[in-house]
């Protein structure tokens, strides 16, 4: 199957990746190649499959409700792209 241009554009928007006009054909071809590979899944007979269960799979562990984290803002914000008065800053969000 060949993935359509509009679909590529939708995927790019959803994943916040901009795709260069020049490369869109290449991107489309390569994605289509991968999708052809994964389309082999459709041949599998999965009627007998139960829900996921591993021999050792256990349930989610739960953590006691106790505060153990302290303020590390300075350590985190020193590696942030842009901050102001303790806030991370980004280009203005539309209301």
């Amino acid at each position: 199957m060949i993935i359509k241009r509009e679909e590529i554009e939708k995927l790019a928007t959803l994943s916040r990746i901009s795709i260069d006009e020049k490369t869109i054909t290449d991107v489309s071809e390569r994605l289509s190649s991968v999708l052809n590979l994964v389309d082999q899944l459709q041949t599998a007979n999965t009627d007998s499959v139960q829900s996921i269960s591993r021999p050792f799979q256990v349930s989610q562990r739960l953590r006691a409700d106790e505060i153990t984290e302290s303020n590390q803002r300075d350590a985190f914000q020193v590696i942030a792209p842009a901050t102001d008065n303790g806030l991370f800053t980004v280009p203005k969000m539309i209301d």
């Binding site: 679909e7 939708k10 994943s15």
Partner: peptide, 13 residues
Amino acid sequence: VQRRILIGTYCLS
């Protein structure tokens, strides 16, 4: 990486 993000996005959409 971009390709795999796009594929993953496609498969979940």
